[in-house]
């Protein structure tokens, strides 16, 4: 190797790692795309809000599944806790949205921390079952405590105060859409920060090889519990947003089905890459919306088929396909 070439090689690997957190233009694409629907599809804004909320929910799942490698079927527990917290507050005379979200985050986060400390001692299938048990137990608790949650009838009487004291939650969901987009934006900045921090990098190490992480002196469980609680906070905020923008909470916020569905959406988009949530959730929900209209009886079959195809032929989800396509184009160039 020529001396100058060696010099270049000497600095560049370090630089490439040190600068990996820098924002690439493509990362702003979701935020450009989120604006036009406000005017273009104004009758679809409630669906739009729900998509944004589910993106936030999937983003929180990506932190534990994609980065820390913790597989869970109970993530909806935190979504549901957030929804009920914000909903119950608003139904009992405290309809201020921001503080309602903060309360949702606190309740979900505290529950995430406590349950995380207990269940993250387990691994693999045992852990998976425990996450499942938690969501089922909380669902049953919400069902039994009808005086507080409305039980199977759902929580009614939610009245939201205007956002920031200025913007009413209107019938068309305009305020809700902007509100959900703003919260998702702030959460995205936060999650992106964590993912690119040394803490976030160490999570990928835990995902890649726990044995080695122990051997280099990592307090593995502490890191796992921390990220589990953070993901619970974000899921709680997502649930709180759903309660506030739809002004209703049903038992379905906190089910195994919802835990599974969000997992599917994330896998569809691509796991462990921050933007899988932004791709998978809209793809799934828009497809679901259209399929349900085209084939009202068997639409779930088509959703299932879509999934089987992705799992069999497109590991890494939709973003994985994009990656491979790009590699193909780059390699073809002389």
């Amino acid at each position: 190797m020529a001396p100058h070439a060696r010099d270049a090689a000497r600095t560049s690997p370090v630089d490439s790692l040190v600068t990996r957190h820098r924002l690439r233009p493509l990362e702003l694409l979701p935020w450009v795309l989120v604006i036009p629907p406000y005017w273009l599809f104004d009758t679809y804004l409630p669906l739009g809000s729900e998509i944004l909320i589910m993106v936030l929910f999937a983003l929180s799942l990506d932190l534990i599944l994609g980065y820390a490698g913790i597989v869970t079927l109970g993530h909806a527990a935190f979504f549901g806790l957030g929804a009920y917290t914000a909903g119950i507050l608003a139904a009992n005379g405290w309809g201020e949205p921001i503080s309602g979200l903060a309360a949702a985050a606190a309740v979900a986060g505290a529950t995430g921390y406590v349950t995380g400390r207990i269940i993250l001692r387990a691994h693999g299938l045992t852990l998976l079952m425990m996450t499942l048990v938690i969501v089922l137990a909380l669902n049953e608790a919400a069902n039994r405590m009808g005086w507080l949650t409305g039980g199977a009838d759902g929580l009614s009487g939610i009245e939201m105060w205007p956002l920031l004291g200025l913007f009413r939650f209107d019938l068309y969901g305009r305020t809700g859409y902007v509100y959900a987009a703003a919260v998702l934006f702030v959460a995205w900045i936060f999650v992106r920060r964590i993912v690119h921090s040394p803490f976030g990098r160490s999570l990928t190490g835990i995902r890649e090889n726990v044995t080695r992480m122990h051997a280099i002196g990592v307090p593995v469980r502490t890191r796992q519990v921390t990220i589990y609680a953070i993901a619970a906070v974000l899921a709680g905020i997502a649930g709180g947003l759903l309660a506030q923008t739809t002004q209703s909470v049903a038992l379905t916020v906190m089910t195994f089905e919802r835990s599974g569905a969000i997992l599917i959406m994330l896998v569809l988009g691509g796991v462990g890459r921050l933007y899988g949530a932004f791709v998978g959730v809209p793809a799934y929900m828009i497809a679901q919306d259209n399929l349900a209209r085209l084939d009202p009886v068997y639409w779930y079959f088509w959703v299932g088929l879509m999934l089987v195809v992705v799992v069999l032929f497109a590991r890494g989800g939709i973003l994985g396909i994009v990656d491979r396509a790009r590699d193909l184009v780059v390699r073809r160039r002389p």
């Binding site: 040190v18 990996r20 957190h21 920060r193 690119h196 921090s197 040394p198 803490f199 976030g200």
Partner: peptide, 11 residues
């Protein structure tokens, strides 16, 4: 001892 740092980028 920097690996627990959550709020600064690794860079």
């Amino acid at each position: 001892g920097v690996a627990g740092d959550m709020f600064r980028v690794a860079g």
